[in-house]
Simulated scan of single mutants.
Amino acid sequence: MRKVKVAVIGAGTAGLSAYRSARKHTDSVLLMDPGPLGTTCARVGCMPSKLLIAAADAAWHMQHASMFGVSAGQIEIDGANVMQRVRQMRDRFVGKVLKGMESIPEQDRLNEGVRFKSDHLLVFWTKGTGHFS
């Protein structure tokens, strides 16, 4: 059993921001996330999809540049290069998040899944058992 003033569930972008804000007011903060750390948004969600949308948007603008008197010629999309850029940008961002995680004291982190059992009481995922306890 561990008592803290602030429990932050999730080490995504919002969770990391909440942790840092809470630490300005108290040392009794616990950041909980089962991992992998580095934010789901950056790893597989919004960031990769936004980079793909940006590539498609660039191609669309090139295709429609003639209305401005600009010709880009034949437009070709190199899917492998697009995906390489997505991976590079994702990995760079996730790397910065992981570096930021290093600044969080180990005693303030818990790499476990949690859920609320009742008001003000969290239970942790017991690894290997397949249930919360």
Rank of each mutant, 00 (worst) to 15 (best):
R2W: 03
K3H: 10
K3S: 08
K3N: 11
V6F: 02
V6P: 02
A7H: 00
A7Q: 03
V8I: 13
V8D: 02
G10Q: 06
A11I: 08
A11H: 04
L16C: 12
L16F: 06
L16A: 03
S17Q: 12
S17G: 01
S21C: 07
A22P: 10
A22K: 06
R23V: 12
H25E: 14
H25S: 13
T26I: 06
S28G: 08
S28P: 05
V29M: 11
L30K: 04
L30V: 10
M32K: 02
P34R: 15
P34G: 00
G35P: 11
L37F: 15
L37V: 10
G38K: 01
C41I: 08
R43H: 04
V44F: 05
V44Y: 05
C46P: 03
C46E: 06
C46S: 09
M47K: 09
P48C: 08
S49F: 09
L51A: 07
I53W: 12
I53D: 11
A56Q: 12
A56F: 00
A59I: 00
W60E: 10
H61I: 06
H61M: 14
H61D: 10
Q63Y: 03
S66D: 13
M67F: 08
V70A: 10
S71F: 01
A72T: 10
G73Y: 05
I75N: 04
I75M: 05
I75A: 09
E76H: 09
E76Q: 10
D78C: 01
A80E: 14
A80G: 08
N81A: 15
V82T: 07
V82S: 01
Q84I: 01
Q84A: 14
R85T: 13
R85W: 07
R90L: 02
R90T: 15
V94I: 14
V97Y: 09
L98W: 07
M101C: 11
S103C: 07
S103M: 10
I104P: 07
I104G: 09
D108Y: 04
R109W: 00
R109T: 12
R109L: 14
L110S: 10
G113C: 06
F116A: 15
F116D: 02
F116E: 05
H120G: 10
V123E: 15
F124V: 14
W125M: 14
G128D: 13
F132T: 07
S133V: 06
